[in-house]
């Protein structure tokens, strides 16, 4: 088992190299940072000079090797747009994104799990359908649309909450709902499914047979067992949170990483995009790695031949 896990960890290395290579090539294929940074009025000479200064005119393999050399030594380069180290720029935005992502997850969990349980307990009754329809409705509205509607209602009409920006807790409410809504439906669906499933398991029946109160059975056993798959599912949604954050951060003027990444992609800020993609990829890969290892621990047959 130990050797499998070790092998699995070693396998992450080619994934990393693959991602850096693909990101690198895709970026070079898709744009000219010189044209974007220097603006419309730049002359041909100025563009050439700029490309030479930042080594953008070197052969691709040389550029890639330079980049990898930097990555290995922990030097992720300088943003072409901001002229600042990319790591500094990303770290500056990280707290805002963690805060928004964290509170959206919390909101989704706090709302999704009880609704999921409720929905499972009232399975297939009209109440179950109405609750699920409402939750799904939230998921079916495009994020920017929901965000603007919330601003119109709660900020402009009612005047209860600020329209955007990062400040005290009141600034957090609308972006949290906007980003969290997309996750709620998912959590409701999996909670419902997991609870239904667990309730049918033998040991729950045993527990019931032993005369434990339904509530105790639910919270002691069913919910507890549903937690891990739920956390796994939530973990897998990190990529969704990141992409949702782009829209939410833009609508609510939230100074986070999502906005930085999307703006950098639009501006062809190669070093910044490369590092940001590597960062998001690392998060996703580590979560996947953890899940794979959990799989093996759970079901040893999956492991070796």
């Amino acid at each position: 088992m130990g050797s499998y896990i070790l092998r699995r960890i070693i396998q992450v290395i080619p994934t990393f190299i693959g991602i850096t290579l693909i990101t690198f090539l895709v970026l070079r294929l898709t744009g000219d940072p010189a044209a974007m940074v220097l603006g419309e009025m730049a002359t041909e000479d100025a563009l050439q000079e700029y490309r030479a200064r930042f080594g953008l005119d070197a052969p691709l393999h040389i550029q890639y090797l330079r980049y990898m050399q930097g990555v290995v030594t922990g030097d992720f380069g300088t943003s072409l747009r901001y002229n600042e180290p990319v790591v500094k720029l990303l770290l500056e935005r990280l707290p805002a994104t963690l805060q928004l992502g964290g509170s959206a997850l919390l909101f989704a969990i706090a709302l999704g799990i009880p609704v999921g349980i409720f929905s499972a307990l009232t399975q297939n009754r009209s109440l179950d359908f109405s609750v699920r329809a409402l939750v799904l409705l939230g998921q079916a509205i495009p994020g920017f649309y929901l965000g603007i509607l919330l601003i119109m209602l709660f900020s402009v009409q009612l005047g209860w909450l600020p329209t955007g920006g990062r400040g005290n807790l009141s600034h957090l409410i609308l972006p949290t709902i906007t980003l969290g809504t997309a996750l709620v439906a998912l959590i409701v669906r999996f909670t419902r499914s997991a609870i239904l499933d667990v309730m049918r398991n033998d040991y729950i029946r045993t527990a019931r047979a032993k005369g434990l109160r339904a509530q105790t059975v639910l919270f002691r056993h069913a919910l507890r067992n549903a937690m891990i798959p739920l956390l796994t599912i939530i973990g897998l949604q990190m990529a969704v949170v990141f992409s949702g954050a782009i829209v939410t951060e833009t609508v609510f003027s939230w100074p986070g990483m999502g906005r930085l990444i999307i703006q950098s992609i639009y501006a062809r800020d190669f070093p910044l995009v490369q590092t940001a993609v590597l960062f998001v990829a690392t998060t996703v890969i580590l979560i996947n790695l953890a899940i794979d290892i959990l799989y093996v621990l759970a079901d040893p047959r999956v492991r070796a031949d």
């Binding site: 396998q11 992450v12 080619p14 994934t15 693959g18 991602i19 693909i22 990101t23 895709v26 970026l27 294929l29 898709t30 744009g31 990529a239 990141f242 992409s243 990444i261 999307i262 992609i265 995009v273 993609v277 998001v280 990829a281 996703v284 890969i285 996947n288 031949d305």
Partner: peptide, 30 residues
């Protein structure tokens, strides 16, 4: 399983980690 699984699993990892915006612009460019 075996090497095929290794390759496909790595591809899945990469795909899940790669931002769709970048992929779209790449296709657009090519």
């Amino acid at each position: 399983r075996g090497w095929l699984d290794t390759i496909i699993a790595r591809l899945i990892d990469m795909q899940l980690a790669f931002p769709i915006v970048l992929l779209s612009i790449a296709v657009l460019a090519v």
